[in-house]
Write a protein that binds this DNA or RNA. Structure first.
Lengths: 255, 255
DNA sequence: GTCAATATATTGTCTGATAAATCGGATAAA
DNA sequence: TTTATCCGATTTATCAGACAATATATTGAC
């Protein structure tokens, strides 16, 4: 069973468990967001991609349809496929955001996302403090507590993410949750973590617990302010690493 | 040119100017969001869709890839395609939101979107009042003025949309703009308009102009409050129509 | 020089065939 | 009886080759 014949009739049709059209979409999408093909550019035609990646034309077509669904490109007969203007891109898409995070504009990306959190999260916390059910409150408290007792950094980050998502869920708006999940997954995708001294960690934990308390006590305005304090703290961390580090594994966590 | 021969060699490969795979994706997507196939359901297979719509298999496959790109479904050999759980859907997508708006849950949708605007737009206005450039300010003022002088309702609505988008653009966050465009297009997709008496229209116009003024004078906090007032006004309209109307062409505009 | 017909290149669509993956049942073994 | 293994069937994944539709570019006519 360990060594099945595996009769490879053709060249590997799959790569690492994901399907080929997915890989191709990923590759082309990344190139577009990265800026290899600026908006307005006519992309290589189907045949060229096909030859370039060594896959069938249908695979290329399906990959392109996936990118069309994200508004990264459009196409018409005889013209070819072209990159859509940036404003049309569906930036609120997990994959697109991931590609963005991996692009040379990573710095801009970080600032944009961080600012975006200033808009979303305070309000979410306020809503959550008004509407959270008991079960939702438990989930929030549990995640918060687990953040405090986490032994490894990745454990802590995971709990942090759960904490934020639990708040968004408790806010009870169907559009808020995907938005938060989007941001979290984009940041997570950077594979970078907050590297703070213990003091900072302790401080961050206090800030999280304050948020938890505000939501428990159902105090919207206080919750809003608490979240703002937490975000300001993260800002400071970003700023530090930004100015200080050259290529220092710079740094933002889910918190 | 009006009556080209059109030599239809085969059965109409296109429908109303849009390509077939697009129509098919639209149809299947709408059915999923509408709830015809609840999450977890195995969808009809390629051959069935193909026969059902009278199109080739490649068209079905490409349509399905587009829906996969929106996380509405996933598929694997021998299993077929199944509807993904709702939490995975990319609700922050223009088309998905449009399908949602057209579903039986339209009521829920309206409430969710309206609440969402409470979160986004006040902050956007505050940011805009701090960062708007002169050109951006001109765009905002122009749209606001055109709202006041519009002769038809649809003209007014269009100007209203421009007004909101101009503010979001001036806020200078790359993630904010798609979000606003998303909301506007979703509401617009409802094909419903605010039907107020002249008094209400006048009042709404005043509220818009107040926002414009706050942004011009660069007063973030005042802008925030002005937007909240505008939204509250819209809320009232929705509530009225909600309780009053049976099927009364009920009602939300871009404002 | 302007306008119309034609050539051409590219995507859109259809069809048929092979590969891969997995479910379900049948069969064999403990 | 229960468990493990194998085989067949079904469905998507992929390939390959064809024709249709369409818009640009070229060419020709006036």
């Amino acid at each position: 069973m360990a060594t099945k014949p595996r009769s490879v009739g053709r060249e590997a049709p799959r790569i690492g468990g994901t399907f080929v059209h997915f890989s191709v979409a990923n590759e082309i999408g990344q190139r577009i967001v990265r800026g290899d093909y600026p908006p307005g550019t006519i992309l290589p035609n189907e045949a060229e991609w096909s030859a370039m990646f060594g896959v069938g034309r249908s695979v290329v077509r399906e990959a392109i349809k996936m990118l069309m669904a994200k508004n990264l490109l459009a196409s018409r007969p005889k013209i070819g496929s072209w990159v859509e203007p940036r404003e049309r891109w569906n930036l609120l898409d997990r994959e697109v955001l991931t590609w963005y995070a991996a692009s040379p504009e990573r710095r801009t990306f970080l600032k944009t996302v961080q600012e975006f959190r200033y808009i979303i999260e305070p309000e979410a916390a306020a809503l959550a403090s008004q509407r959270r059910s008991e079960t939702q409150m438990e989930a929030i408290s549990k995640a918060c507590h687990e953040m405090g007792t986490a032994r490894t950094l990745s454990e802590r980050t995971a709990a942090d993410t759960r904490f934020h998502l639990a708040i968004l869920r408790a806010a009870g708006n169907e559009l808020l949750l995907p938005l938060g999940a989007l941001i979290d997954s984009a940041l997570e995708g950077l594979f970078v973590f907050v590297t703070r001294e213990v003091n900072d960690l302790r401080h961050a934990q206090d800030l999280h617990e304050e948020i938890e308390r505000c939501i428990r006590l159902q105090r919207p305005e206080a919750a809003r302010k608490a979240v703002r304090r937490l975000l300001a703290n993260t800002d400071a961390v970003i700023a530090t690493q930004d100015s200080g580090g050259s290529g220092v594994r710079s740094a933002v966590g889910a918190s």
